[in-house]
Each structure stands twice: as structure tokens, then as C-alpha cells.
């Protein structure tokens, strides 16, 4: 009897061990609306980080910009100038974007990625050397690096994802050499195609505006609207770029936060993958939105 039980126990143990191994090796399910960006060094030869020995760990990023529908579900309001559920949310400051991330995390039972202290002015938020204290909010925002909640991409993550990650074909714009194929920008985002010099009254009269997310061609990773439509906030202070770094988080202090990708109001050059834009953290405009990320 005992002899017969030994093989049975071994078999059960083997099954349990196999199940455990399977549980460990089972791929983590990609969250809804997100794409897994497999990490590595930059393949995009036009990237600011190419050849700089900068490594990005794998992470998840939203397939689209955060839409107004998603924003309203979480925040209960809609700050956007151009209304429409499928349009990207805009008129959001960097602080608004950070708050959205945390509130959405809590709503979905995730651990918030950001610690937001609204009572203490951030000493790392410096006055603009030319314009003075543009940002009167200056919340102190720090991160829980291991939290599974929603967050903004770092500047390096944004550029890595926009360039197609390991699948990069080194396009100037995210997914193409032809800006019209992948981006809503000032020439093509209104009633008629505009040509020649950028001229704000011309854009205004042509009703240039945002467009529903996901209408243009995606990039190598299946991500939409990284170039154009709305500019996207990144976590980083605008500053010098690093060499030889893993998962860089940007400068320790600064006076403007980074945006990337350009928007419907931008000239084509500013929708390029490698272009680095910046705006005070409390700044907002009808072309300023964001997309969310999560740790893998």
C-alpha cells in the first residue's frame, strides 16, 4: 500500500511543481488599451539616445492618447476646447495629468504611482530664468517606483516607444517618413490643407483642431498619434540627456516639464520623434494632452 502511494505522491508533487513553474512563467496579461513595449537599447539611428548606452526596461504604454471619455470617467469633468468622446483630452496641465494617473489607479484597484504633496512647494521647481515664476502651483510630486498604477512615460520611454522600440525603422515621425501619413499637424488638421508659412490666424480660420484618436497609421509597435494630434506630457524636467543610463528619469530639478510629439497646431518638425519640447508644469493649451504607462 505504501509502495503504491509513493508514485502517486510524486506525481502530485510533480503536477504542483509544474503548475508553480507555469504560474511563474505565464506571460503577464497586457492591460486593456495598452501595448507591451519590450525593453532594450535604442535601435532608432535618429534618436537622441542612439549609441548612448541608454537602456529602457520593458513597460506598458497606452495605444492611444487619453481620450475625453476616459478622462470624464475618472475625473468627472472635461477641460477640453474641442469636445468629443473619442478626441484626446487637452487643456490639461502636467499636474492634471499626474492627478488623473493616480485617480485612475485608485479607481481600478492599483497602487498609485505618484505621491502628491499639495502643501509643500517643490524646491526642485525652479523659476524660469527668463520669465520668472510662471508656475504658481509647484506641488511636490515624487514616485513610488515599484507601484503598478498609471503614470506618465519618462522622456526616454516616450522616445523609445515612438521610435518603435526594438522594431524601429528609424522613421523621422512616429511610424513614417511622411508626416501626413501618421500625424495631425497644422497643415492637415483643419477644413483645408494649408501650405507655406505657419501663421496662427490661418490655423484659426481654417478650424484646425484635434481629431479622434487612432485614425492615422500606427507606428512599428501599433501605437497611434505619437506624432501630432496632441502633444504628450512626460515625467521629466527638461534638461540635459543622459549617457550610459538604465531607465533614466530626467533632471533632478528644472523649470519646465517635457512634452513630446507635437500636436495639431505644430509645425511638422516639432512632431518628429526626436524633437524635445517643454512647458511650465502648470501650462495648458488646446493641443496639450498625454498618454499613460504602467510598469511591467
Amino acid at each position: 500500500m505504501k509502495k503504491r502511494m509513493v508514485p502517486a505522491a510524486l506525481a502530485i508533487a510533480a503536477i504542483l511543481a509544474a503548475a508553480g513553474a507555469a504560474a511563474k512563467e505565464a506571460p503577464q496579461k497586457t492591460p486593456g488599451g495598452m501595448v507591451l513595449v519590450r525593453g532594450g537599447v535604442f535601435k532608432d539611428t535618429k534618436s537622441n539616445y542612439f549609441g548612448k548606452d541608454v537602456t529602457i526596461p520593458s513597460f506598458y504604454i497606452g495605444r492611444y492618447d487619453v481620450t475625453q471619455k476616459e478622462w470624464k470617467t475618472v475625473m468627472g469633468n472635461n477641460p477640453s476646447k474641442f469636445a468629443g468622446d473619442d478626441l484626446p483630452v487637452e487643456m490639461v496641465s502636467w499636474y492634471d495629468s499626474i492627478e488623473y494617473c493616480n485617480r485612475r489607479s485608485l479607481k481600478e484597484g492599483l497602487k498609485p504611482y505618484y505621491r502628491i504633496d499639495k502643501t509643500r512647494k517643490d524646491p526642485n521647481n525652479k523659476p524660469d530664468p527668463h520669465f520668472g515664476d510662471l508656475d504658481r502651483i509647484k506641488w511636490t510630486v515624487t514616485t513610488n517606483r515599484n507601484a503598478n498604477g498609471y503614470r506618465l512615460p519618462t522622456e526616454a520611454e516616450w522616445e523609445y516607444a515612438a521610435s518603435g522600440g526594438q522594431l524601429s525603422r528609424s522613421f523621422t515621425y512616429s511610424g513614417s517618413e511622411d508626416v501626413n501619413e501618421v500625424a495631425w499637424y497644422w497643415r492637415n488638421s483643419g477644413d483645408m490643407q494649408l501650405a507655406g508659412f505657419w501663421n496662427w490666424p490661418a490655423l484659426r480660420e481654417n478650424h484646425d483642431r484635434t481629431h479622434p484618436v487612432g485614425l492615422k497609421k500606427p507606428n512599428e509597435l501599433g501605437l497611434y498619434d505619437l506624432s501630432g494630434n496632441v502633444r504628450e506630457w512626460c515625467w521629466d524636467w527638461y534638461g540635459d540627456l543622459p549617457d550610459r543610463a538604465r531607465n533614466p528619469q530626467g533632471s533632478a530639478s528644472g523649470y519646465r516639464r517635457v512634452w513630446r510629439g507635437g500636436g495639431w497646431m505644430s509645425g511638422a518638425a516639432f512632431t518628429a520623434v526626436a524633437f524635445r519640447g517643454n512647458l511650465a508644469a502648470n501650462g495648458a493649451g488646446p493641443d496639450q494632452g498625454f498618454r499613460v504607462c504602467r510598469n511591467k
Binding site: 524660469d128 527668463h130 520669465f131 510662471l134 505657419w198 496662427w200 490655423l203 484659426r204 502633444r231 507635437g262 500636436g263 497646431m265 505644430s266 509645425g267 516639432f270 519640447g277 512647458l279 511650465a280 501650462g283 495648458a284 493649451g285 488646446p286 493641443d287 496639450q288
Partner: peptide, 16 residues
């Protein structure tokens, strides 16, 4: 003349 959060060739910007 300082322009804060105004339209520009880069999009909404604070510029001179």
C-alpha cells in the same frame, strides 16, 4: 513682449 501659453509654431508655448 512675453507670450504665456499662446499659440506658436511649436504649439501652445510660453515664448518671447
Amino acid at each position: 513682449h512675453q507670450q504665456v501659453n499662446q499659440p506658436s509654431i511649436q504649439g501652445t508655448a510660453t515664448f518671447e
